[in-house]
């Protein structure tokens, strides 16, 4: 789609707004219903992993998803490209 099409697309902005909002609010509501221990779990995991690998707060993400009757706790840790292993002191 060219630039011309982009500006002249027949989608009306209110439709776009409604679609974006519906998705956003559904996601907000899932987050709101997450158990409150997740941030603390994330901090504690970070502390443990930091003992061995040099990572930041941003390198860990924890999400909780619901699928039908089962809950999935997803933990993502992005390790640095060249692991700077800490020398045990």
């Amino acid at each position: 789609m060219g630039l011309f099409d982009y500006f002249h697309a027949n989608r009306r902005s209110a439709e776009v707004a409604k679609e974006r909002l519906s998705i956003l609010i559904a996601r907000d509501q899932i987050q709101r219903n997450q158990p409150s221990f997740l941030p603390q779990l994330q901090d504690e995991l970070l502390e443990v992993i930091k003992k061995y690998v040099d990572i930041d707060q941003d390198d860990i993400s924890i999400t909780l998803d619901r699928e039908d009757d089962c809950e999935i706790l997803e933990l993502n840790i992005a390790l640095p490209e060249k692991p700077r292993q800490r020398q045990p002191s």
């Binding site: 009306r12 902005s13 209110a14 439709e15 707004a17 409604k18 909002l21 519906s22 609010i25």
Partner: peptide, 12 residues
């Protein structure tokens, strides 16, 4: 079509 309608907002 430039503004969300009453119905849209109520639905959300």
């Amino acid at each position: 079509g430039e503004m969300l309608s009453v119905k849209d907002i109520q639905e959300i």
